[in-house]
Amino acid sequence: MPIIPVNYYIFLSLALFAIGIVGVLTRRNAIIIFMCIELMLNAVNILLVAFSKMHHVAAFALDKTTTVGTEAQLFVFFIMVVAAAEVTVGLAIIVMLYRNIHSVDINFLNRLKH
């Protein structure tokens, strides 16, 4: 029986998340920043599925018909739904931004200062 500690998945997820954060912090292109945010969302998704599996395995040892862990996977499904909607609106905003300032460089978005 192949066994992988859940910690590995946690570390994988955290690594992806940290890479996403570094991307958000270092890049100036709004689209790339947006992609990094998607990356962070996916890191969380992995974590959810891994925990779902973990609990399922624990419950399965006692009861062969258990459905423990279903909710977590549905949750991931809803996250994807929301992410899709978010991407639609976000990209629309970026398109409008480009139309207005002819750039997607967030350094030009310093109106908050004024």
């Binding site: 954060i21 958000v24 100036r28 967030i106 350094n107 978005l109 908050l112 200062k113 004024h114």
Partner: peptide, 14 residues
């Protein structure tokens, strides 16, 4: 502190 740069705000948040 208020540079108006979104990047710096995210950095501070992190």
């Amino acid at each position: 502190l208020q540079s108006g740069q979104t990047g710096s705000y995210v950095l501070i948040m992190t």
